[in-house]
Simulated scan of single mutants.
Amino acid sequence: MSLTPRQQGAITLASGGLLMGTLGVFVEEARLDALTLVFFRCVFGFLSLAAYCVWKGFFTRAQFTRRTVALALISGILMITQWVGFFDAIHRTSIAVATVVFHVQPFWVVLIGAALFNERLGVDRLGWIATAFVGLVLASGVAASNNLYGHTSYLIGVGEALFGSLLYAAVTLIAKSLGELRPHLLTLMQCAVGIVCLPMIAPFAGTLTLTHIGPMQWFWLIGMGVLHTGLSYVLIYGALPKLTTPVIAVLLFVYPLTAIVVDAVVYGRALSPSQLVGMVLIVAASLGVNLGWPLLSLLHPGGRTRSHAK
């Protein structure tokens, strides 16, 4: 029995999310600093994406204008900074906590869009955003004093993941304005920015280890670039055009849910009940924002009608 394009897209997007959910294991097992991890992710991600783009014939002159190149380079700086912060957040907190905190990114997109483009948020969206940030407080563990007492590093990690989500929101908005540039090429250029810039800033930003890397460490580094930057992005970008917004909104949470399970199974770091409640709130709020679910409008007459009329 052959699958429909929509079914193929759903399976492909879920597969990409499952693969991305294992990223934290590669970060932990490589046992290298965040700057080194990101540099080699960029190297091997660039090579794998370049091979794919050549195979698909994506390198055409029409794809590269002054505007697209300039914006792609800016997004590259933001993306590489975000990756460094996220990887360091995993080291300081855990795979699950860093990933869950990072996934408040959709709400930054909404807030930044409202600030830049004067978009009206509405009472429902504001309610869902408030719900998401309550979930953030619970999921991050900052409400649990036993997690934080004397653990400045943990708080720094939570802050890095949160700041990374803000940077990624900016990258998302830039990508939306680059509709004419294939997303594979955008990621390729972001990796190129990392390859060039990270060695230049290493003396000021931290350690960049290029030698004395063991065979198993190379395995994790190559996997991070080929699997989590090459293959996973190809799967995700290939699936999105085949799916509707509601399906995408639901399936995008395969990634953080997989990361939570992987962290619990591999490292025994299960989220506490309050953190799981926070994760549920973030997921529900994200779906509410993306799908236009009514929330606060239910509290006043006619709210449901207005919400569905959007």
Rank of each mutant, 00 (worst) to 15 (best):
M1Q: 05
L3G: 06
T4P: 02
A14Y: 12
G17R: 07
M20R: 06
L23T: 15
A30L: 09
L35T: 14
T36G: 05
F40H: 14
V43H: 02
F44P: 10
L47N: 12
S48F: 06
A50H: 14
F64Q: 03
V69Q: 00
A70G: 08
L71W: 15
I74P: 04
I77V: 15
T81A: 13
V97H: 07
A98D: 09
H103M: 14
Q105A: 12
F107A: 08
L111G: 13
A115G: 12
E119V: 04
L126R: 13
G127C: 03
G135P: 07
G135H: 07
L138Y: 03
A144S: 14
A144R: 13
N146S: 15
G150D: 01
G159W: 01
L162A: 14
I174V: 04
S177C: 08
P183D: 01
T187M: 12
L188P: 00
L198D: 00
A205H: 13
A205T: 15
T209C: 05
T211C: 00
M216H: 14
Q217G: 09
W218H: 12
L231W: 13
L235R: 06
G238D: 01
A239L: 04
L243W: 04
P246N: 13
V250W: 15
V261Q: 09
V262R: 00
D263K: 00
S274G: 09
L276R: 06
V283I: 15
A284P: 11
A285D: 09
G288C: 04
V289Q: 10
L299V: 10
R306S: 04
H308E: 10
